[in-house]
Simulated scan of single mutants.
Amino acid sequence: MRTALVTAVAGAVVAFLLGLLTFGVQATAHPHDVPLAVVAPPPIAERVAAAGSAEVDLRVVGAEEARTLLADKEVYGVLEIVPGQATIRLNPAINPSGTQVAQQVLTGVAQGAGLPLKVEARAVSAAERTAPLAASALLWVGGMVAGLLFVVLKGRKLRLLSSLTTAVLVVASVTGLLAWWGVTFNAEALGFLLVVAVSFALLQAGLFKHLGIRAMGILGLLYLMAPAVAGQVPELLNPVYKAVLWSWTPFRFSTEGLRTLMYDGSVSTEWWVFGGIALVGLVLLLAGQKTQPDRPDGVVDVGVDEADRLPRAERQHTA
């Protein structure tokens, strides 16, 4: 009876926590203070500024400033209004969820002004929209599976070599898959992908070294909850999820960094983030040797001699 009750409660608690950390992100998503820029003559600009709401942050700026803000990803979209015409400009390097909200809101503004509308944006395929988050998740899964098999197969040596080899092969696998979907990377994006893969593989190998198969409790949970957050933009997230999950998840940095580099942008913070993760993983790998190999079945080798079932250190040899 006790076992039945404990297992039932455990299942309910795990389901609640996973729902809270994964599906809860999408269930509570709602736009707030989404930054948008509008370029318009004074009379229209005044009406636009007065039409602000809690969902969007409409900034009335000059044409050059608006394009700079869009290029720097400070706004999700720009609406330029000239006599008789309205134009929406979007940046493909920005999260698609953000650009979708921007286009909907700015279209409404243009229609309210009674102007014909055109959209200027680089065409982005479904595969290109999916690729940054998909690549990040697959790199994590590849390193995690390799690290887990290293434990299950009772690997003892060359864990570092295994991690680096895993990173290279997983990057090759992911880029091949994306190329099949029609997505190709420039040299800098490919280099960034390799850095991400190395950092993930080193961190996972370090955790597996010290925790054994129990590391799956941490790595598996990170995989389940992080992609759900990384696929959103902060202005769509519930403030609690933004602070507790989005602010630190490495999937967010890898997804945003790769998307930026795909469209010839530049990143800086992301290089430092994954360099730091790789360093932590390397320290874990080099921090001492386990006194016994990883055993997936939980059996601990205490050095018992098979012949007489006594510890070898205490075994007495007769003359």
Rank of each mutant, 00 (worst) to 15 (best):
E120H: 04
E120S: 02
A121G: 05
A121D: 07
A121W: 03
A121P: 06
R122Y: 00
R122V: 04
R122P: 02
R122K: 03
A123R: 06
A123F: 03
A123G: 01
A123W: 00
A123Y: 01
A123I: 05
A123P: 01
V124R: 06
V124L: 08
V124Q: 06
S125A: 05
S125Y: 10
S125T: 14
S125V: 02
S125C: 07
A126L: 14
A126V: 15
A126P: 11
A126I: 14
A126G: 13
A126E: 15
A126S: 15
A127G: 01
A127M: 09
A127C: 10
E128S: 09
E128M: 10
R129Q: 15
R129M: 13
R129L: 12
R129E: 15
T130D: 13
T130A: 15
T130E: 15
A131T: 04
A131H: 04
A131S: 09
A131W: 04
A131F: 09
A131E: 08
P132W: 14
P132N: 14
P132K: 13
P132G: 13
P132L: 14
L133H: 10
L133S: 13
L133G: 12
A134E: 05
A134P: 01
A134W: 14
A134L: 11
A135P: 01
A135C: 09
A135E: 01
A135K: 10
A135R: 06
A135L: 09
A135N: 02
A137V: 15
A137H: 08
A137T: 13
A137E: 11
A137S: 13
A137I: 08
A137F: 12
L138V: 08
L138I: 08
L138Q: 03
L138Y: 02
L138F: 01
L138A: 08
L138E: 07
L139E: 03
L139I: 07
L139D: 08
L139V: 08
W140E: 02
W140A: 02
V141H: 02
V141Q: 03
G142I: 09
G142E: 08
G142K: 05
G142H: 03
G143M: 05
G143F: 10
M144H: 09
M144L: 15
V145C: 06
V145T: 07
V145M: 09
V145P: 09
V145R: 09
V145W: 03
A146Y: 13
A146W: 09
A146I: 14
A146G: 11
A146E: 13
A146D: 14
G147K: 11
G147T: 10
G147L: 11
G147Q: 08
G147F: 08
L148H: 09
L148V: 12
L148Y: 05
L148S: 06
L148I: 09
L149S: 06
L149N: 06
L149E: 08
L149F: 12
F150I: 00
F150V: 10
F150R: 07
V152C: 04
V152F: 05
V152T: 06
V152Y: 03
L153F: 03
L153D: 04
L153M: 04
L153Q: 02
L153W: 01
K154V: 00
K154E: 04
K154P: 00
K154G: 02
K154T: 03
G155A: 05
G155P: 10
G155N: 07
G155C: 04
R156D: 10
R156A: 06
